[in-house]
Amino acid sequence: MPISFPSCVPEYCARDLVLAFPALVDDRPVQCAITAEALEDHFGARSLREDDLVNAFLAHRFQIEQAARLLLGEVGAKPVLLHSGFFRFCT
């Protein structure tokens, strides 16, 4: 199952406090997201401000996409949400 990530800027969702980013699984778009808490706890986001979250995501994009790839490999072409707790166990 080929999984790739288009190189676009993630989308901030203030209501859910997440950054959403796309993946392509078998050439089908799948929504991925990472919580603001995970970005603060594990990737150095300085605050919940959109700029700080996006900067942390971009600085650690490879690790975040690898984590999403791991989960997508488990669940298939279904949306995934990366929580802080996931990174406690996978690092």
Score class of each variant (00 low, 15 high):
57 F>Q: 10
90 C>M: 12
1 M>Q: 14
2 P>Y: 04
44 G>A: 08
87 F>Y: 07
2 P>N: 10
35 T>S: 15
25 V>Q: 07
79 P>G: 15
10 P>C: 11
71 L>Y: 05
25 V>K: 06
47 S>F: 02
74 E>D: 15
47 S>E: 04
3 I>N: 00
46 R>H: 06
65 E>D: 00
21 F>W: 09
72 L>N: 13
67 A>W: 01
80 V>P: 02
30 V>G: 09
67 A>L: 00
14 A>R: 09
56 A>R: 04
77 A>P: 05
30 V>W: 06
14 A>N: 05
72 L>W: 08
40 E>H: 11
58 L>M: 13
48 L>P: 00
87 F>R: 03
58 L>I: 05
38 A>V: 08
21 F>T: 12
85 G>D: 14
8 C>R: 07
26 D>S: 14
78 K>A: 15
52 D>W: 02
19 L>S: 04
4 S>H: 02
51 D>S: 01
32 C>G: 12
25 V>R: 05
90 C>F: 12
84 S>W: 09
17 L>M: 10
83 H>M: 10
67 A>K: 01
70 L>V: 10
59 A>S: 13
25 V>A: 13
81 L>H: 09
48 L>C: 03
68 A>K: 03
11 E>A: 09
7 S>W: 00
83 H>C: 06
14 A>F: 02
53 L>V: 03
51 D>T: 00
39 L>M: 06
10 P>F: 09
18 V>R: 08
74 E>W: 12
9 V>L: 06
44 G>C: 06
24 L>E: 13
89 F>I: 14
3 I>T: 01
71 L>C: 13
26 D>F: 05
73 G>Y: 11
25 V>M: 09
56 A>L: 07
55 N>D: 07
23 A>P: 05
45 A>K: 03
45 A>W: 03
47 S>M: 03
90 C>P: 00
22 P>C: 07
35 T>N: 11
68 A>V: 01
61 R>N: 03
66 Q>M: 00
14 A>G: 00
8 C>K: 04
16 D>C: 05
76 G>E: 05
88 R>N: 15
